[in-house]
């Protein structure tokens, strides 16, 4: 990814502990700081949730729960590593916990109708937005276990041992899931009508 033009985003992503005063202010319960911080994080949070779950139906609910978890957990952020990475892990764990709860009642909503109404942001070049939507719709068609491993590895940039640790799954199993997931995604992309640059030629 290239550099981002928003200084606010950069402030969050690269802040050392205390560097972004909003973190401390939010810990102290200052509402404006908390809102400002969460508004900035929201797009990233929603994107990650969408990468991890099928369809769009539950994204807002899970994202909201993740925001609450972030605010409540802010005091545990020790400034080790990037703030964004800490945020990503909290969001991923919140999402996995949600999915685990949802698994029992089979309440997964199939959201095909909503999918058809998906629209690009006013702020996004349409081709980029369309591409991302297409990719995530392909992800919707591969098994969750492969999907989760792939998102943590390819989207969040975790190493295989880190994914293994995060999901509590053996290293070799993760590698296997990644291999299967990649193959499935390539096949789906080809079937769907094309593969991005460097894809399955």
């Amino acid at each position: 990814m290239g550099s981002m033009t928003s200084t606010g985003r950069e402030a969050i992503g690269r802040a050392r502990p205390g560097a972004d005063p909003r973190i401390q202010a939010a810990i102290q319960g200052r509402r404006e700081a908390a809102e400002s911080l969460l508004m900035e994080l929201l797009p990233r949070v929603r994107n990650l949730v969408r990468y991890l779950v099928h369809g769009d139906g539950e994204v807002e609910d899970i994202a909201q729960e993740a925001l609450i978890a972030l605010l409540r957990g802010l005091s545990t952020y020790r400034g080790e590593g990037q703030f964004q990475s800490w945020v990503d892990r909290v969001v991923a764990r919140t999402t996995f916990a949600w999915l685990k709860r949802a698994r029992g009642n089979e309440a997964r909503r199939v959201d095909e109708s909503a999918e058809l109404m998906a629209v690009p942001s006013e702020d996004a070049p349409p081709d980029e937005y369309v591409h991302r939507r297409r990719m995530v719709m392909l992800l919707d068609r591969i098994p969750d276990e492969q999907r989760h491993a792939m998102v943590l590895h390819h989207v969040l940039g975790m190493s295989v041992p880190e994914v293994s640790d995060e999901l509590g799954i053996p290293f070799e199993t993760i590698r296997s899931r990644l291999r299967l997931g990649r193959a499935a995604l390539r096949a789906l992309a080809t079937e769907d009508g094309g593969v991005p640059d460097g894809g399955a030629e």
Binding site: V119, V155, P196, D197
Partner: peptide, 15 residues
């Protein structure tokens, strides 16, 4: 580009 690193730009979450 197939699965780009996470960022704050629009997508894949709906607008």
């Amino acid at each position: 580009g197939m699965l780009a690193p996470l960022d704050e730009d629009p997508g894949p979450a709906r607008r």
